[in-house]
Amino acid sequence: MKRREFIKLTALTALGVFLGSGALRSASAKITLEEALKKHLGVGLSQIKESDKVKIKAPSIAESGANVPIQVSADVPVEQVESLHIFVDKNPNPFIASVDFSPMNGEVFFATRIKMGATSPVRAILKLKDGTYLMASKEVKVTVGGCG
């Protein structure tokens, strides 16, 4: 009985320390998704519509948050597209990258490897030349965060 209590206690303490440090860090520098969207796109999430024309490929479960492969493509002629923006909701800074396209690209395509601090949706937002936005998102489970 005593031993069990001891294990419980240490487990709880470890969890407390873990959560505590996480909370401290996020309080110091965290930017919300909405703030990041406003800063980089000038619009909020409610003005961006989900579309199956945008395709995002990412693992459902990432072994390490330090290195998550993602790939984005779209069934939209590149001539109609201005740029692509990648965001991770739960990262200390949700903005990951953006890509400015030109007709010389031939098609909308971008692949990279990103850092993820925790389980979160990964969002790919396409800014079209007519001023509208199309989005696809994919939830990626992260067991070990990689934003340290």
């Binding site: 290195n67 990951i96 395509f109 971008f110 990279t112 490897r113 990103i114």
Partner: peptide, 19 residues
Amino acid sequence: VTRINSSPGISKNPYFAIK
């Protein structure tokens, strides 16, 4: 052809692919 705007959210030893 293309500009990629990167950030610290990209992994160490960045990999990029475009078409």
